[in-house]
Design a protein around this nucleic acid. Structure first.
Lengths: 112, 112
DNA sequence: TGACTGTATGTCATATCCGACATAGGCTGG
DNA sequence: CCAGCCTATGTCGGATATGACATACAGTCA
């Protein structure tokens, strides 16, 4: 079944340490960059939602989406696109400046 | 037909002057931010392709896509997602740094 | 304990996006 | 002129993402 594969990749992605992408996985440069980017957006979305003191269900209403999809967004589920993540961040009022910062910033730096 | 609407919105988007989005169109903040973002990526993609001296057809081969889709990407056609634009930029080897710059930078600044 | 709240995960029908193809128009060098 | 590129636009069948729903699980409060 397809789910297995996707889940595996996602979970592996979550466990990454900075810069370790290519070493552990058989991903191409673009693919690993894409996944890292997505994970950053996912984390950024959760942080922003929490700053706004919203539950996933509340944010879902704002997005005209559902709680389950918000959960998937924040966990970096393979079924969600960068497109949706970015649109969601925009609905939460992120500025171009903050969005670009989110993209540029390494996971390590943001965790600190 | 649907094409009319999409085309109209896209063409209007193309004609924007900096900061004039909301004034001319009946778009929400998120929607206009999304479209502007997409147009920046579209322009960025074309610039990068040209810097690499590639035709749309050549780039399409690299992306395992088609010339027509590349053309649509670069013209900001509504049928292309931010997702595809970003993946394409990644294939062209854009760094997180440059990607974030692309997102942060205003159209006016980039034109200069 | 059990009601309640918030989050995660799986599934599905449908909406949207994608690659591919056809075709048109522009431009350049014969 | 026209042959050979390059880019733009429309269409379509198939692929993928989406919202919605069901359900599970953890934590909290009384």
């Amino acid at each position: 079944m397809k789910m297995r594969e996707e889940k595996k990749k996602r979970l592996e992605a979550k466990g990454w340490k900075v810069g370790s992408a290519k070493e552990f996985l058989n991903l191409s440069d673009e693919e690993s960059a894409y996944i890292e980017l997505k994970m950053r957006m996912a984390e950024g979305l959760r942080e922003r939602r929490q700053q706004h003191r919203l539950s996933q269900a509340e944010l879902a209403r704002m997005l005209k989406s559902s709680q389950s999809r918000v959960a998937k967004m924040e966990t970096g589920d393979p079924s969600v696109s960068l497109d949706l993540l970015i649109r969601s961040l925009l609905v939460l009022g992120i500025s171009s400046r903050d969005l670009s910062r989110l993209i540029a910033t390494s996971r390590a730096a943001r965790a600190a």
